[in-house]
Design a protein around this nucleic acid. Sequence first.
DNA 1: TACATGATGCCCT
DNA 2: GGGCATCATGTAG
Length: 216
Amino acid sequence: MLSLQKTRSRDARPARLLPADFYARDPRAVSRDLLGKILIRRRARKTLSGRIVEVEAYLGENDAAAHAAAGLTPRNYVLFGPPGRAYVYFIYGNYFCLNVSCEPDGIAGGVLFRALEPLAGIEQMAQERGVALKPSHLAGLRLLTSGPGRLAQAFGVTRERDNDKDLTSSSSDLQIVDDGYRPARVSVGPRIGITKAAADPLRFIIAGNPFLSGRK
DNA sequence: TACATGATGCCCT
DNA sequence: GGGCATCATGTAG
């Protein structure tokens, strides 16, 4: 049986807000370095947070699977803009997906958040997801943030509310911070749910983490 | 447990 | 009008 909260930091080290230059790099490098960082949604009543355990890199206009491959459009302009901004898109008529823009301003690239390990605000996440939660039950917790559509819903992410939001601003209600945690082992494999460029190893995971997306 | 399928709406051609 | 960086549910084994 896997223990819960495998990645909860024991350190008292204060969390550091990731700056824009962290994202102003190749999405593959950003992806690897985002594993283990913490996504935070600050709300009036409660703060939600989750450890990043699975991401995918989407490259520029030469990546056939990337939205940027279509060239600059009203939908995907954030990918071409400054680094560290939220790119949110609507998919399959039901779900939003959250990305962060990479590369310097003018160059396209992004990272898709595919799975988090819930850390704080779990009751609120369950409410957003509309799931009845049995406390400390792993199968139930996995339903909250194990998948890109799920984590966006759990964190209340929408295109209207969050698209083009600056994740590197200290005044932002959506941020990514480093609390000093470092993954024991990172694995890389093919991206999920795509047909073009499907073989490229651009999916990055914390190996063995119980909150990865997909069936167990 | 594994796989197939329907729901659902926006964007781009 | 086709396709889509998904998820929940149903059915078969």
